[in-house]
């Protein structure tokens, strides 16, 4: 999917202001394929804003962002095809069952051999037995499982996850982690935001801390540095 060896995500001085509020004050980051990035920060620090800009849901006030070498302003459709985005909202239609939901998204993304892929994904997320029940009847955990299937459906090369562990039961967390590890193994890039430092650091190869719209820490998450930086960050108790 990648054009040559261009970075999976490359942002240059991304800024976003809402009226007088500055959500992002210039974020410059480069993620390579196969990187598993954990993005930490308190509420309102700008994590979600950054992911939404990368996913083309929000327009940056300033700066450039490329996904797999493609500028998100110039070819947003091509970029969206490479991205899988999962937030605490699953974007699933309550009146449709899992198969119908996935079939709809498969058509939007032009997924080849959709039925086989849908069936395989549903088994993978453990929803095979519930595949004919409307999503309305699903618990939060089941909903999120289907949300994960939706994200993986078109085989994205960049997976953006915004607080994906919220509301997931232990089994589902395990399943999600296994799928993410597998994706990284297949050369995909994962960017994950979370409050949960343990989950965040579990498999991350890189960690960044964002505070009031700025990257205040960025480094390898192997070993102690990131944990120390995070603890320091939390202890400082920056005014909200």
């Amino acid at each position: 999917m990648h054009a040559g060896d261009s970075p999976a995500l490359e942002s240059e001085d991304i800024r976003k202001t809402f009226g007088h509020f500055t959500a992002l004050a210039g974020v410059t980051l480069t993620f390579q394929p196969s990187e598993f990035v954990a993005l930490f920060g308190r509420n309102g620090a700008g994590k979600t804003t950054f992911l939404k800009i990368a996913a083309t849901l929000m327009r940056a006030t300033h700066g450039r962002l490329r996904i797999g070498g493609t500028d998100i302003r110039e070819e947003p459709e091509a970029v969206r095809r490479q991205i899988g985005f999962l937030s605490h909202n699953t974007y699933l239609y309550r009146d449709l069952n899992p198969v119908e939901n996935l079939r709809f998204f498969a058509r939007l993304y032009g997924v080849a051999d959709a039925e086989t892929r849908i069936s395989a994904l549903l088994s993978r997320v453990g929803l095979k037995r519930r595949m004919n029940d409307p999503v309305r009847s699903f618990s939060r955990g089941l909903n999120q499982r289907l949300g994960i299937a939706r994200v993986m459906l078109h085989d994205p090369s960049l997976i953006l996850l915004d607080e994906p562990y919220t509301g997931l039961d232990a089994n589902a967390v395990e399943m999600l982690n296994a799928m993410l590890d597998e994706a990284v193994g297949a050369g995909k890039t994962i960017v994950l935001t979370t409050h949960d430092i343990e989950q965040g650091l579990r498999a991350a190869t890189r960690a960044a801390i964002i505070d009031r719209g700025r990257i205040v820490f960025d480094g390898s998450s192997r070993g102690a540095p990131v944990r120390d930086a995070y603890n320091e960050y939390v202890r400082m108790g920056v005014p909200q």
């Binding site: 996913a55 083309t56 849901l57 947003p76 459709e77 091509a78 969206r80 095809r81 991205i83 985005f85 937030s87 909202n89 699953t90 974007y91 699933l92 239609y93 309550r94 009146d95 998204f105 939007l108 993304y109 032009g110 939706r150």
Partner: peptide, 18 residues
């Protein structure tokens, strides 16, 4: 309201169509 329920509109906006 069907599209707003569960934020489905966002899901549509994520899809590769203009």
């Amino acid at each position: 309201s069907i599209e707003l329920d569960n934020d489905c509109l966002q899901g549509l906006l994520l899809a590769p169509l203009d």
